[in-house]
Amino acid sequence: MLDLFIDLSLFTMLVATGFAIVKMRRLFGVTMMTGVFSLLSAMLLVTLDAVDVAFTEAAVGAGISTVLMLSTLTLTSRIEKSPVHTPWIPLLVVAVTGAVIIYGTLDMPNFGDANAPAQVGVAAQYMERGPEDMDLPNTVTYILASYRGYDTMGETSVVFTAGVGVLMLISGLRRRRRRKPSRDEGEVS
């Protein structure tokens, strides 16, 4: 019963934060609300026993992504202009998509079912053989680094590619800014 209460109150706060993000027009406030959303979702992840993921979500979601958002805000604008379209078509799209997703969940096993297909597959083998193969107490660590090492290598290359992309997009920002006025003058004369 207590589980359900904690679950529901966390969900209420998450949904309220989500609606606040929809309504808010000051982007600074939106950024702060994104941080709040990340912290709340980290709390929910702890109740789902995913402590490592909660840790990462709190560090990455509330930390790094807030910093990135704030630095983008300083380079762009801080206010969202009022919308020009009516919200009816997006609401229709969202309602239809939501209905389809909920229809998809109807024949799923119950939450927390120990005999669900997700529980009896390869994960059980990892749990069984891990202590002999690796002798590490944290299962998430040894699966991430060893059994699923190629995933992690791919992830690293994705992060590297994104980093190179960001550097190529942003580099020379100050140089272009300095050059821009002179180029405009050239066009005028």
């Binding site: 979601g61 790094i64 992504s65 997700a118 998430v140 994705v158 590619t161 942003i170």
Partner: peptide, 24 residues
Amino acid sequence: NPLPHVLILTGIVVGIATTSLGLA
């Protein structure tokens, strides 16, 4: 089950990479 945790750890990091690219 720790397997979803592992996959989502990868997912979070890839997510922040795409976010930063979008912001750039």
